[in-house]
Simulated scan of single mutants.
Amino acid sequence: MRFYTNSKIANIILFLTLLFSLYKLAPKDFSSKNEPVKRRFNVAQSNREATAKLDLVEKELSKSSDLAVLQQPNVEAIEELQWWQNMTFDPEIVTKHCHYNLDIRHWAPGKNLKACCPPNTSTLIRSGNWEGNLQSIVFNSLFPLVSPNAAFIDIGGLIGVYTLSAARLGRKVFTFEPFWTFEYIKSALIVNGLTDKVYLYKVALLDSTHCAILTTPDKGPEFGRMVVKEDRNCSNLHKQVKVAILDQLLPTFRREKIQQAVIKIDIEGSEAKAILGGSKLLQEIDIPFIQMEVDKTLKKLNENGTQEKKLVEKFLEMMKQLNYVASPMSKDWKTKRLNMEDVSHWPADVLWHKKSAF
């Protein structure tokens, strides 16, 4: 029999203590067959509880009316189209539909522009321009009141008459047009040598980046009356259009050091949604003037209990909070005010302007 001295016994005890400590620190394989059933049940239960809490948070967030503005924007739509000038263009449009002279002598004397017009655009061909009276107010009355470096945002470019004039006047322009007329704007920019002045986006602007589809009127001409409608289920893939929010311009404005802009918006009843999607832009960038077609938007206030009515009410409240007032889109806009508490008698086109704009 071997006998151990006290020192040897102490060393053995120390060694066993270290082994036990290492065992306690070692990671456990809870998937092992030797794992107690109770422990497996507790881990699974904890995972289920954590998942349930996350689901509850997401459900509550989805109820928030501000979620559309606060969610992470889908910048892919805009980034994909920023370099549109590298894309191919339709030579048939350029050769057959871009020979119309735009009448811009009232705000750009001595300058000339060619418009690219789809078939059946008789109003433009007959009068020499489109909404010439409104353009005159924008370019003769509003532009002199802003910085020479102020940009122009054209939401609902159609065939680009506002875009072309603003670019010819030396402004940096940001144009949004989700429909097939996008090709006519693109061709007109090429013909007039203005591709370096315009960011052209083939996207629709709404209050969030959910799916949307293109609809056309049941009766009457399609041109100029195309509408974007939400498609929450993303089910009509063949009619879908790309959607962005106005706030997605902020990275570009910051990079280009743009501090001021004028907005023109005419998108067949979706104006409130588009501006709501630009709440951050309106707070960070000086936007002293917004020309807006409002007749179709304000009609939604008669749709009691609908989400559309709530969005228009939210839009009007936001404009008040941002210190905007409204005037008729006319030459005497400086002296006339529209009643913000009763919009039922507003004209079809209004001018939103900051109280400190002049």
Rank of each mutant, 00 (worst) to 15 (best):
I258G: 08
M318D: 11
Y201R: 03
V241T: 08
D231H: 04
V312W: 02
V198S: 01
E303L: 06
K219F: 15
F223Q: 09
K202Y: 00
D207G: 10
Q248K: 06
V227Y: 04
E293P: 00
Q248A: 09
K299R: 10
D218T: 10
N192R: 12
K280N: 12
N236I: 06
S208T: 06
N304F: 15
E268W: 01
D247Q: 12
Q259C: 07
Q307S: 10
I287S: 08
I258Y: 14
N304T: 06
V243C: 06
S208H: 09
T252H: 15
E308T: 13
K300C: 04
Q259G: 05
G269S: 06
P217I: 14
G193L: 12
R254N: 13
H238A: 13
L250D: 03
V227E: 05
H238T: 14
Q259R: 03
Q240F: 06
E256I: 13
I258N: 12
V262A: 04
G269N: 03
R255I: 13
G220Y: 15
S279W: 02
V294F: 11
E222F: 08
L298Q: 08
I213W: 08
V243W: 05
T297L: 13
N192A: 14
K296N: 14
D196P: 11
K242V: 03
G305E: 07
K264V: 01
R225F: 12
Q291P: 07
D247A: 12
E303V: 07
V228T: 03
D266L: 04
V243T: 09
S279E: 06
K229S: 09
D218E: 07
K296F: 10
I267Q: 00
I275C: 03
D247N: 13
L301I: 09
I267N: 00
K310T: 05
L281W: 01
N304A: 12
K257G: 11
L246H: 15
K229N: 11
E256V: 15
E313P: 08
K273E: 10
R254D: 11
